[in-house]
């Protein structure tokens, strides 16, 4: 049986994980990939509801699940078994084959230097909300340089989910890094 690629989208609360998933899914669907989403709601169904609304007409509602962290792995397996022809499942804060770690500019430009497993070990580091940089005196150049030091050459992508900036590059990085054997379908 084909193994469905699990892509984790991790990072601090409010860094833009859900928004990023909402931006990524249409681009993956555009590449003819069959997608599932498991959002990381802690105590509500707010995220899953938001994703369902945002992806209306792009991804069927029943391909999106919202579950608390404790049962996330079960939810992923359940969703995968209901849609076995899936290519990729995007999982907020969950166990995965490939990890995209999302931080945001407004948390301060010293975040990459402070390091942490998400900063150094993730397959792709996303620095989100680049539009806020001038308002919080964040130097994107410093963030890029510090991240490069911690990550030994692994990709860092700057994004702004409000304008879509950086999302095409992120999509390409995910396709080449994780979906290398399924991303070629046209």
């Amino acid at each position: 049986m084909k193994t469905i690629c699990r892509i984790g989208v991790g990072g601090p609360v409010g860094s833009g994980k859900t928004a990023l998933i909402e931006e990524l899914v249409p681009r993956l669907v555009q590449r003819h990939l069959k997608v599932l989403v498991v959002t990381g709601d802690a105590v509500s169904t707010e995220d899953a509801d938001h994703v369902r609304r945002a992806l209306k007409g792009i991804l069927a509602e029943d391909r999106i699940a919202g579950v608390p962290a404790a049962v996330r792995r079960d939810a992923v397996e359940d969703l995968e078994s209901r849609f076995p022809d899936t290519d990729v499942v995007l999982i907020e804060n969950g166990a995965a084959d490939f990890v995209v770690h999302v931080i945001d500019v407004a948390a301060g430009d010293r975040i990459p230097r402070k390091n942490g497993p998400g900063i150094s070990r993730s397959d792709i580091l996303v620095v989100n909300k680049t539009d806020l940089a001038p308002y919080v005196d964040a130097d994107l150049g410093v963030m890029a340089a510090d991240a490069a030091v911690q990550r030994g050459g692994k990709p860092v992508v700057f994004t702004n989910c409000r304008t879509g900036f950086g999302i095409p590059e992120l999509t390409e990085r995910i396709l080449e890094g994780a979906l290398f054997d399924v991303g070629v379908r046209v």
């Binding site: 049986m1 193994t3 690629c5 084959d97 490939f98 080449e176 890094g177 994780a178 290398f180 054997d181």
Partner: peptide, 20 residues
């Protein structure tokens, strides 16, 4: 990981896609 892309010492681009 079951899925990984990395270069060997000799520069071969390996795309690993193993069963879970």
């Amino acid at each position: 990981k079951r899925r990984l892309r990395k270069l060997t010492d000799g520069g071969v681009d390996i795309a690993l896609s193993l069963d879970r």
